[in-house]
């Protein structure tokens, strides 16, 4: 990849890619692979399937680029493709579950020793148990940095639903964190 191509603006790269310039598209892949893989990894959970979904998203983007009119940001457009790819892949696999059902599995109770790193690991683990829609909304908000409005547009869901999903997911995570770690441990770690 040439130095020159790396410094070319995104807009130029996008329009060149739309005309079939593979080198330009290669720069975009390089730029967005981490973002797209992380996103699909969080939605799909399984690393292998996440990589397949990220790859498929790039291929779909390449094919659809001539139709990209630049009305939204290129990144948002790419996220939408990735979201659709992951969600349709997830739908093939298993039926949707409700939040209470997914998070209702009892835990063994607070552990003895705890560190800050463990709090994050616990939360991440609980995130992976969330129903797909909740996990997707949470990922798009916190990881991709999209607003409620952008998420609603991208997922074709009412904004109220998106907001409710995110709020309920965070509340469920908070409850699980308390159950699994225990307040005494948390207090010690957080306020040390």
């Amino acid at each position: 990849m040439s130095r020159y191509m790396e410094s070319v603006s995104e807009q130029v790269l996008v329009s060149r890619s739309a005309r079939g310039d593979e080198q330009a598209f290669g720069v975009l892949v390089e730029r967005y692979k981490g973002m797209l893989y992380s996103m699909s990894r969080r939605l799909m959970k399984d690393p292998g399937r996440a990589e397949d979904a990220a790859q498929e998203s790039f291929i779909k983007a390449w094919a659809a680029l001539p139709g990209f009119k630049g009305e939204s940001k290129f990144s948002s457009w790419l996220y939408r493709i990735c979201y659709n790819t992951c969600i349709s892949e997830l739908r093939k696999r298993k039926p949707e579950v409700e939040l209470d059902e997914a998070m209702g599995v009892p835990v063994e109770g607070p552990v003895q020793e705890f560190r800050n790193r463990d709090i994050q690991a616990t939360i991440q683990e609980e995130v992976s148990k969330l129903p797909d829609d909740y996990r997707a909304a949470l990922t798009l908000y916190h990881f991709n940095g999209l607003s409620y409005e952008e998420i609603a547009k991208l997922t074709r869901k009412p904004m109220g639903t998106v907001k409710a999903h995110i709020h309920r997911a965070r509340a469920a995570l908070k409850t699980r964190l308390l159950e699994r770690v225990g307040w005494d441990n948390l207090k010690e770690v957080m306020w040390q």
């Binding site: 709090i119 939360i123 964190l177």
Partner: peptide, 27 residues
């Protein structure tokens, strides 16, 4: 304190990189 822990963990999720050779595979 609990909600802050949750939100700050969610906000600071690292960018994960695919395996080496991913870009070449895509291209």
């Amino acid at each position: 304190a609990l909600m802050t822990a949750v939100v700050s963990t969610l906000d600071h999720q690292p960018v994960l990189e695919p395996r080496p050779g991913f870009s070449e595979k895509v291209m």
